[in-house]
Design a protein around this nucleic acid. Structure first.
Lengths: 139, 139
DNA sequence: TTATGTGCAAAACATTTGCAGGAGT
DNA sequence: ACTCCTGCAAATGTTTTGCACATAA
């Protein structure tokens, strides 16, 4: 975990990863980014994609989403915003509602933590899956 | 994904898993539950623990937490509540603040999803880690 | 020229699954 | 008996890592 010592080199691989990520709003997984990037850089390795997504998220260039499901997802939109995940197909979308004000302060009062940020993940059914009359397990 | 057809049998393994989970407030991972349970049932398999945690969370008996980090965590407190995770040590605690009213409706208006629920995950430093003067990467 | 980055492959984790035998009803 | 459940081990899926070579500054 290094400081601002040497800035990250802007390699071709990093540039392409960032460009491809900016193109989409689908919050792709590392493997999906790999597939997108490989069309332009066929010899790139999956390890490189993982390494660079991690580095870029550490430096605040992109966002690493730790939402539900088995894989991490990545987002080129770094402005704080919330997400909704379809419990049927696993798709993740942005929720364009205002960020909840004062919620971090409430949490600070109700815990012994120094609160830095928060994230809200909504769960539901996307338009397509809702149409299929999918019956979720209500609990 | 079956309905309420046959209720789950209350086997010794399931009973012990649930009892151990009720004992703690640490939101243990599957592997931590395995370690706790193994002290009482040395021959239980890790697969059984995973299978039963999954089944119990499907039936609403326990909560599967899909918070940040690499592993899923489990909670015997099923009443809706929020969580805070220490970015330094990874510990997860409850946040005893009221559930945000009307937030699902806001999200429904700002997305094309049928919203079912939401979860808020706060990120910060726990009391112990904050004392250690840990310098987080602010972004 | 030299620190940093890459491709490749193997390793490390986390979780799921197949199956033969075991237990509850 | 019959079904559901378990232990075990192997398989799967995701992410990380070691290392020799490549490349940007």
């Amino acid at each position: 975990m290094q400081e601002e010592s040497t800035p990250m080199r802007l390699t071709t691989q990093r540039q392409v990863i960032l460009e491809e990520l900016i193109k989409v709003t689908s919050h792709p997984t590392a493997n999906e980014v790999y597939d997108m990037v490989r069309k332009r850089l066929p010899r790139i390795g999956l390890g490189t994609v993982y390494r660079n997504l991690e580095l870029m998220s550490e430096s605040g260039l992109i966002l690493k989403l730790e939402v539900g499901g088995t894989q991490k997802r990545f987002d080129a939109v770094v402005k704080p915003h919330y997400h909704v995940r379809c419990i049927h197909c696993g798709k993740v979308n942005d929720v364009d509602m205002p960020v909840q004000q004062g919620i971090n302060e409430s949490a600070a009062q109700s815990s012994h933590y120094k609160i830095l940020s928060h994230h809200i993940e909504f769960t539901g059914l996307c338009y397509q899956c809702a149409k299929v009359q999918y019956q979720p397990i209500m609990n």
